[in-house]
Design a protein around this nucleic acid. Sequence first.
DNA 1: CAAATAGTTAAGTATGTGCTTGACAATTGC
DNA 2: GCAATTGTCAAGCACATACTTAACTATTTG
Lengths: 112, 112
Amino acid sequence: MNPIPNRKTNVDRVFHALGDPTRRAILERVSSGPVSVSSLAKPLRITLAATVQHVQVLEKSGLLHSSKVGRVRTCRMEPKGLSVLEQWISERRSLWERRFDRLGELLAEETD
Amino acid sequence: MNPIPNRKTNVDRVFHALGDPTRRAILERVSSGPVSVSSLAKPLRITLAATVQHVQVLEKSGLLHSSKVGRVRTCRMEPKGLSVLEQWISERRSLWERRFDRLGELLAEETD
DNA sequence: CAAATAGTTAAGTATGTGCTTGACAATTGC
DNA sequence: GCAATTGTCAAGCACATACTTAACTATTTG
């Protein structure tokens, strides 16, 4: 009874990245313009090293892009990751809504 | 330099729940009709106990609802969790799209 | 050049996650 | 009643995650 082997998909990475409130805070910052890593770190109550780690997670998920000029790494939004998310939802929404509409009906069927 | 205290929000729970492929598979199953826990467990290569744990995570996130009749626990979709997700996205999409549209422009500004 | 700034890397720690096993409880079918 | 089915609960294990500190490498700036 071993689990399915755990090769991570884009969807996994995006959901995981967004599951952390600190990373969502970073995205909020980045969404209103390019920011350096140390500038990101300041309002968060964590070290620069920890901030770098969050940036790496966001970058691997495709939600953020960064590039280094001189000693400064500048982070920008990368909407590719968000579109992965939106696609995942849109692929399911119609089906889910249909079930939702029929939910009362189904409950009635099941509970007799 | 301590992190922000980790009281979990609904958004945290929803993203975390969806970050696991097994749980997404469970949701797919449930989205096409009510299913018992043991019936959910069968195609997944994990024990019944592990399946129960995933169901609990999904339930706490608001993505799934379950109720027990006799010895059988039946799981149904609960669109509340998905709406949390859609709301989170819609609150950000317009801003993010605006930034995306201006991205080329911004890059030009920043790199001179 | 020296000192401050910005980031990187590695190692270590505490806690969380995903899973298992095994013992148990409740329901249903023969 | 007895056995099979369905689920629950509590430990425990391996590994992942979110941090820290400390040592190090650029790069600016005075």
